[in-house]
Simulated scan of single mutants.
Amino acid sequence: MSNFAQDQSVKLNHVQSVIFDWAGTIVDFGSFAPTTIFIAAFKAQYDFDISLAEARVPMGLGKWDHIKAVSELPAVAARWQAQFGTVISKTDIDAIYQTFMPLQIAKVGEHADPIPHALDVVNGLKQQGVKIGSCSGYPRVVMDKLIPVAAEKGYVPDCVVATDDLPAGGRPAPYMVLKNVIDMAVTDVGACIKVDDSVPGIEEGHNAGMWTVGLLLSGNEAGLTLAEYLAADEATLHQAREKARDRFTPFNAHYLIDTIADLPQVVADIDARLAAGERP
């Protein structure tokens, strides 16, 4: 057996890489940086109002696609028709996106605080030899602002892929996570875990043949601020958890956990499943 084959056979029994989303997963508890800017962009460009709940619906998509998806929500489309007497056009979406981008670039660094326990979990994985990948619905110009601020706060992944880095497009297609696999020289997608707070991110992981972990309370689906989360009683957390679970359940994530703080137990369980010969 070659040295590569021997090395590969050993690694197949263990998690090789965890690939994280950014907002709502590692940084920006509640995923507020993108959602609040979507609201501001619609308002600034066309004096058109969308709600925070509407802005959250397509979270995880690339940002141009996200704006398009919001505009196609029945309630949003009806209000647009009533206000402007026509359906929203590609030109309108382009204009909102062009307004969105400088706002997002200016504000993203303000939402770079790590989610509680994220750095401990990431550093623990690194100590085990697990490679830390990442990808985002943010385009590269936004990531170039976020990456150094996150690094100053202690988060430095081994790989970062933005939604516009690849011509084939972003989520739910698997290209961003597969780019992580290539760049980090991971030998088996079945030994990778995709962690995300959005449904398109879970679909992305499935489409790449990876284990998938959905986050119920730290991200987009619960929509809690960190202060709300820390102050919440168990009844409030249960309600938020079940709301998020209802959104994730049809998409069959392998695991659903509250926040990244719960990930080490999941990694240990997947290690045991891999050792027993299981695949995602």
Rank of each mutant, 00 (worst) to 15 (best):
L263R: 02
R247A: 15
D196Q: 09
A272F: 01
D262E: 15
M210R: 14
A227M: 05
W211E: 08
R273G: 02
Q265A: 15
D197V: 01
V199L: 04
V266E: 04
P264M: 09
A235H: 13
I202F: 09
T236K: 15
A227F: 00
D246A: 14
E221V: 04
W211T: 01
M210N: 12
L274N: 04
L237D: 02
R241H: 14
I202V: 14
F248A: 09
D271E: 05
D233Q: 07
Q265M: 13
R245G: 04
I257H: 08
G201Q: 05
L237V: 02
W211Y: 14
E242V: 06
G209A: 09
L263K: 03
T212M: 10
A253H: 04
A272G: 02
H254K: 08
D262W: 02
L217P: 14
Q239S: 14
S198P: 02
E203A: 07
T236G: 13
W211G: 04
L230A: 11
H238V: 00
D233F: 09
V199Q: 10
T225L: 05
E204D: 11
G205F: 12
H254G: 12
R241S: 12
D269A: 09
N207K: 12
L216G: 06
A222M: 07
D233G: 14
M210F: 13
E221N: 13
Y229Q: 08
L215V: 14
G201N: 02
A232Q: 04
V195R: 12
G201P: 05
D262I: 01
A208H: 12
T212E: 10
L274G: 02
L224E: 11
I257P: 07
T249W: 00
T212N: 11
D233E: 11
F251R: 13
E203F: 12
R245C: 05
A276T: 02
D271T: 04
L217T: 15
L263F: 04
L215D: 12
A240L: 07
W211S: 05
A253P: 15
T225Y: 06
